[in-house]
Design a protein around this nucleic acid. Structure first.
Lengths: 317, 317
DNA sequence: CAACCATTTTGTCCTAGACAAATAAACGTT
DNA sequence: AACGTTTATTTGTCTAGGACAAAATGGTTG
């Protein structure tokens, strides 16, 4: 209320890349092809993107994450895009995401009740049990919070607060479980460029309740390091997670590269609802769109690795 | 062992960017200026980097993190670079960081004993108590692990494993403490570009044991959002942490910006051993080089805010 | 309805020059 | 000898418009 009011600050291209996740090359080629963005130039002749264009780019990015194509939306007027977003929750499976817990949690977030939010989440976790809490409640909450953020109904710092509380809760829950000894042994991490931890923690929780030995390396491990780590830890499976913040192309390229470097007998599972956006597959990679698929993939793996082991062992005894 | 033996695979420029963290522009300009890297070209005329050049680039990157400059090392032969690395542990302040716990922990890390590492750390924490564990043991361990990584004595994935275990431990400890109700109320986060969480968690732990109300927003909160969050949560102090991975200038610029946007009556504390590198100060920002200084800063704050409160209250009763 | 082929869309890569910010070196002052 | 200021060098990022391969779309045929 005092000073320092932000009056239409213009930012350079690398800031836009950082904020929107659109590469510099893409931003330049859109300007050439569609006439948008249309940045002014600073004293040095370099692009300076005004705040409103950055905002529109964020919106475009959000719509592309929902499956729209640049040619249709980049040149379109702002009002049209906002209309798209309003009716964007696709006709089918969406339903009413902001029902029950989501509504309550969003209210707590908006009221900045950190302690109460944590308590509410913790109680729900205890009541439901870890697995349904993660696969049903958290999955739905994340979608609701993400949507609310994209539509500007909650601020970034409010989203951060939510994420932080959930992280604390999940880590606490995971840490309280005894270290499992069953196979498979799974190495969890994300590839460079993917800095979101939440998906990883949720996968960790889902696997831990199934008695899987999980080893997490946190975020942004280079492909070669993952391959080395998998060898060093004798992992059966490597699990990497992707958030919607990541570009689909970049994710696929990174996955292909990782698959090439990884020992062929180690399975590679890639999770995240990023795969809703494309039908493309990478050979030798199991793509898991939802958390439920984790237990399917697990039982499939155990099925495949049960028989050979039994055969190997019994005749030798 | 079947097929796909990795025989000198050549990778494209975006893979090199992903693996080394060197931007495409930088890779191209090095080629022009120093003659290295010197990638072959594929059928399409695009750069294809052989495995050995990628390896040398990784080494160069490590040396640059130790403070060397591209002009001196990019064109140098491989043998010379490896020699640099051997004698890189600076002559003075180093001392014997690898004593006691550090030695033991490094051994566990190198042996990939995740469970044992966690147990060892957990036991040490219980034996010493949270505060000395964080301010003494962890601080020393971080330095030792950082040094070992820079010298190539442990791999990136091993460093990741260590960080992950410590994070789990700290979050568990913090989550187990009752929510304090005392002043000050502190908002903790990092600024964009600083993605390391560990320093933040250590500060959180140190403050929590002193009965401070801590609210953490996780990493990379934009300055404007921090200012909003501080207002929304009625914070008395904003704490941001910086790791040595961050450029000193970028850190100072970001801090100045944050101070400008923050309400003047909210204190701003900036922690991290990054401040060892410079003597420059930012007006209105308290710089904390070590974790010990946190309790000093706290008692100073409480001292300053005790008297006015007491005076205000007593005459009215 | 599925599988194929042609067409359009789209992201990434290319070259080579330019410049400002960061850093080191040189110099003068206390 | 330690510190502050100016000058020189180093270094990363930006720009332009062209090119092309891979992906998605639309149409046609079995």
């Amino acid at each position: 209320m005092v000073v320092g009011e932000t009056i239409d600050f213009a930012v350079n291209i690398s800031a836009v890349e950082r904020e929107t996740g659109l590469s510099k090359d893409t931003l330049r080629v859109w300007e050439r092809r569609y006439g948008f963005p249309n940045p002014t130039r600073d004293a040095n002749g370099e692009r300076a993107y005004p705040a409103d264009q950055l905002e529109k780019l964020r919106l475009i990015r959000r719509l592309m994450d929902l499956g729209m194509r640049p040619g249709k939306i980049v040149a379109a007027p702002l009002a049209e895009l906002e209309a798209h977003l309003g009716g964007a929750h696709g006709g089918e499976g969406a339903g009413d995401v902001e029902s029950g817990p989501a509504q309550e949690v969003l209210a707590l977030i908006r009221a900045h009740q950190a302690a109460e939010l944590r308590e509410y989440l913790g109680m729900t976790l205890l009541r439901m049990g870890l697995r349904p809490f993660v696969t049903d409640v958290l999955a739905q909450l994340n979608a609701a919070v993400g949507a609310a953020w994209a539509q500007g109904r909650i601020a970034i710092f409010e989203e951060h607060l939510y994420t932080e509380q959930v992280q604390h809760l999940l880590r606490h829950a995971i840490g309280s479980m005894p270290q499992a000894a069953q196979r498979p042994r799974v190495l969890l991490t994300t590839l460079p460029g993917e800095e979101h931890q939440l998906g990883l923690l949720m996968a960790h929780a889902c696997m831990a309740v199934e008695g899987v030995q999980c080893i997490s390396l946190g975020v942004q491990t280079p492909a070669r390091e993952i391959a080395q780590a998998a060898r060093a830890h004798g992992a059966d499976v490597v699990g990497v997670s992707f958030s919607t913040a990541m570009q689909t192309n970049a994710a696929l390229a990174a996955l292909t590269d990782l698959r090439r470097q990884l020992d062929p007998d180690i399975a590679l599972w890639a999770g995240g609802n990023i795969w809703q956006r494309t039908r493309r597959q990478v050979e030798g990679v199991t793509m898991l769109v939802s958390l439920q698929e984790i237990s399917l993939a697990l039982s499939r793996w155990r099925e495949q690795h049960r028989a050979p082991n039994a055969i190997e062992h019994s005749p030798l005894r």
